[in-house]
Amino acid sequence: MKAPTGRYETIRTGEEEYRAFVPDPLPPPAALITSTELTAATERAALALGRLDGAAHVLPNTDLLLYSCVRKEAVLSSQIEGTQSTLSDLLVHELGATPDVPLDDIAETSNYVVAVNMAFEQMASPTGLPLCNRLLRDAHAIVLRSGRGAEKLPGDFRTSQNWIGGSRPGTARFVPPPPHLLGESMSRLESFLHDSTDGFPALVRSGLAHVQFETIHPFLDGNGRIGRMLIVLALHNAGVLRTPLLYVSLHFKRHRHQYYELLDGVRQHGDWEQWLLFFMDAVTVAADDATDAARRLRTTFDADRARFHDLGRLSGSTAHIHDALTARPVLDIATAAELAGFAVTTATHALERLCAMGIAQELTGQRRNRLFAYTEYLDILSEGTEPL
């Protein structure tokens, strides 16, 4: 019989009385998460991740897919929190230009990219941090270092009560653990992340850890973004995902109402299986989407490069600038020249040539500080990243 996955603590303040939820330690009883249907869904997700790992090598440079996937996840995860920035906005911002969206929106998205790269670098370094609470706090410090929420204790667990929905804890839809129990809850989650002897597949453990983190809600702000980042960090820690190629927030964004309902279903009714089935679908869809994108990009690159043979002596410089655009689908002339090792004039002519061929597009309409986009490449990457 299903039951809540934790206990309620009654908190009395001078103003009101409310109940805060304290989750039970992970993992839940095996009987709740070992159905045949879930086993099959987990196997499908694992196979999809395997295909994605192989797809990275379809491209001429394996870093190309990593560059785009990290940024796509950053955009999607931030959009779930209400930002309006797009993938194109992020790439423009990274060149030092000003996109046509609120600065706080783009700062949040850009910070996510820096944070997830930092976390993977730490975990890969012999002297770096493992997957632990300290690493999550460091990532949080980067995510909230600028933009909205910068005043809400970046890098520190909260020392006051937060809540979800409503204007105060007494009217909230959900109240996470009180501050005096927060440390114990996060220590138990950290122990679960380090101990893989329970026999559950890495994908199941990642899905469990995400729910637990979101239930604890350890920060005053930014819990959703760090909680979704934890998914790829946990999969990497288990050796299932070598690089952060997975933009699982794509599925969460498309089905965000169901996403939140299922998280509540775990807390209130112990319905782990329905959540994990949804989670496995999210992993499968995201992995298949990224795999398909890699193959489409390779087809696009090859078709466009085949057109350069008709350019005669100009084919070489055009191909090199095309290579620069495959590395950075939005760039300025100076960056293109630097990546290709050309003079600015040579890079300018090659970019204009690519525009004339319909491969690239100038974005600003200005004579100075022009930006160029690899149109079809950006279209493929941007699928699903329209603001809510």
Results as ranks from 00 to 15, higher is better:
209 A>C: 12
193 L>H: 05
50 G>D: 01
219 F>Y: 13
178 P>Q: 03
148 R>M: 03
26 L>V: 04
56 A>K: 15
366 Q>T: 15
285 V>L: 11
128 G>E: 03
38 L>I: 07
197 T>I: 05
218 P>I: 08
381 L>H: 03
250 L>V: 14
275 W>V: 05
176 P>N: 09
366 Q>K: 02
236 H>P: 01
49 L>G: 10
313 R>L: 06
58 V>T: 13
33 I>E: 15
250 L>P: 07
237 N>V: 00
180 H>C: 09
351 L>V: 08
103 L>H: 08
355 C>N: 09
18 Y>N: 01
16 E>Q: 09
210 H>S: 11
142 I>F: 10
336 A>P: 01
225 R>G: 00
349 H>P: 04
235 L>C: 05
374 Y>D: 12
128 G>K: 01
341 G>C: 06
113 V>K: 01
296 R>D: 06
157 F>W: 14
61 N>G: 05
299 T>Q: 15
348 T>S: 14
293 A>L: 03
53 D>P: 08
292 D>G: 10
292 D>Q: 12
267 R>F: 11
13 T>Q: 12
14 G>M: 06
182 L>M: 12
265 G>T: 14
164 I>V: 15
173 R>K: 11
169 P>F: 13
103 L>G: 07
136 L>N: 04
209 A>I: 04
179 P>T: 02
144 L>E: 01
216 I>R: 11
344 V>G: 07
338 E>A: 11
243 T>I: 06
109 T>Q: 04
163 W>E: 08
157 F>I: 08
221 D>K: 03
88 S>A: 05
29 P>V: 08
265 G>R: 14
143 V>Y: 10
349 H>E: 13
83 T>R: 04
37 E>P: 09
85 S>C: 07
62 T>I: 07
151 E>K: 08
308 F>H: 09
352 E>I: 13
377 Y>S: 00
89 D>Y: 00
353 R>C: 14
120 F>Q: 02
90 L>I: 07
245 L>R: 00
333 I>E: 02
321 I>Q: 02
243 T>G: 03
336 A>E: 00
79 Q>S: 01
356 A>Y: 08
291 T>I: 04
273 E>A: 10
109 T>R: 01
219 F>M: 06
142 I>T: 15
205 R>N: 07
331 L>S: 04
357 M>D: 14
96 G>W: 05
256 R>A: 10
95 L>T: 10
286 A>W: 00
101 V>R: 00
4 P>Y: 08
388 L>H: 13
7 R>E: 15
209 A>V: 04
199 G>R: 03
135 L>S: 11
23 P>C: 03
160 S>H: 05
82 G>Y: 07
146 S>N: 15
12 R>D: 11
135 L>N: 06
43 E>I: 14
226 I>N: 03
